[in-house]
């Protein structure tokens, strides 16, 4: 058998072995055995010294060709085996993807904060500033500057916690308005503000009363502010909060600091006005109080009511939350039971 024939035979045998190799290990053994320094090809090449100088290059190049072919075949087989091995490994690594993921801690914003921020953002979009004030206020700002002098019957409506004769826990966020009005520079533009915060009334805590609750009030003062502007603004607010197809209705009411004064109802967001337990079968929900700022209030803050007019409104985040989610006990907001507060993880979008 000529060297060439030997090589040819070797090649065929090796390729058959490669095809049969079942794993990378076997393949590697073939490679070492066939292509290694002590392998048969090397052996054949060593026998070339007995060949004539004409034959030598022919056989040499043939041997190299065989060697390369085998090497290539090994590579090809290696890829196949590796891919198979990976597939097997992946199968072995299969997870139960239905097992729960690792817990990532996430806290929840208090629902009242969520509602206040939601309202703040609606008004920020309309050019309002957010202004906070003092929770312990002067009687003068809480009452007198709001056109509620001493002995005014309206003080009955707002029984309060006094600290001294002059100081009390504010009963509404209105004193913030008085404080802002008296320093506002109208040469720099109109006043548009909202003031969210805690307020306090002398009430025994029960399901519907809390000595501490929240309010968010708005105020706009400029030339030519109208009751129509108040109506339009509240429509924007209530539609954003309760849905685009809500309607509002104004009913006359009384607040010492506004004239005219109105109570504002929104068509029931639960039944759409047909009547349900949320709206007590009326189709309407009383949601806020509002009015045109009383000229005396403007005057006391150094604003000329002949030149400027304005509107003010106020609503209670606690009440909004109770209505929106059907919370039946106002105390839930201040006890901070995790089972309560963590339910509000999913935020309303509007």
């Amino acid at each position: 058998m000529s060297l060439k024939q030997q090589l040819e035979k070797l090649k065929e045998k090796t390729i058959a072995e490669i095809d049969e190799a079942v794993d990378l290990n076997a393949l590697n053994n073939i490679r070492v055995e066939i292509l290694g320094k002590k392998g048969p090809i090397t052996e054949v090449l060593r026998g070339m010294k007995d060949l004539s100088s004409e034959e030598r290059p022919v056989v040499g190049s043939f041997a190299n060709e065989i060697k390369n072919k085998i090497a290539q075949k090994i590579e090809e087989k290696k890829e196949i085996l590796e891919s198979q091995a990976l597939d097997e490994a992946l199968v072995a690594e299969t997870l139960d993807v239905t097992l729960p993921g690792k817990k990532v801690p996430q806290g929840t914003r208090h629902i009242l904060t969520q509602i206040m921020e939601e309202i703040e953002d609606i008004f920020i979009g309309m050019g309002y500033q957010v202004i906070e004030g003092y929770e312990v206020e002067k009687d003068a700002y809480n009452f007198e500057r709001m056109n509620i002098p001493k002995n005014h019957p309206a003080r009955d409506m707002q029984d309060s916690f006094y600290v001294t004769e002059e100081l009390l826990l504010r009963t509404h966020t209105s004193p913030v308005q008085a404080r802002t009005m008296e320093v506002h520079d109208f040469s720099k533009g109109p006043l548009r503000m909202i003031s969210p915060g805690k307020v306090f009334r002398r009430d025994n805590d029960d399901a519907t009363h809390s000595h501490q609750f929240h309010q968010i009030e708005g105020l706009v003062i400029d030339k030519n502010i109208t009751m129509g502007d108040l109506k339009g603004t509240l429509e924007v607010l209530l539609k954003k909060m309760f849905g685009e197809d809500r309607e509002i209705r104004l009913r006359p009411s009384y607040f010492p600091f506004t004239e005219p004064s109105v109570e504002v109802d929104v068509s029931c967001f639960k039944c759409g006005g047909a009547g349900c337990n949320v709206c007590k079968k009326t189709g309407w929900i009383e949601i806020l109080g509002a009015g045109m700022v009383h000229p005396t209030v403007l005057e006391m803050s150094g604003i000329d009511p002949e030149v400027y007019s304005g509107f003010a409104f106020g609503l209670g985040p606690d009440r909004v939350a109770m209505l929106r989610y059907g919370v039946t006990d106002i105390r839930s907001f201040y006890l901070n039971d995790l089972r309560f507060i963590e339910q509000f993880k999913v935020k309303e979008s509007n």
Binding site: Q129, G189, P190, I225, G228, D229, K231, G232, V236
Partner: peptide, 15 residues
Amino acid sequence: LPSTLPKGEALPGGL
């Protein structure tokens, strides 16, 4: 009553 928004100067508003 009509339903309008305050006319007046536009303000940026914000926190």
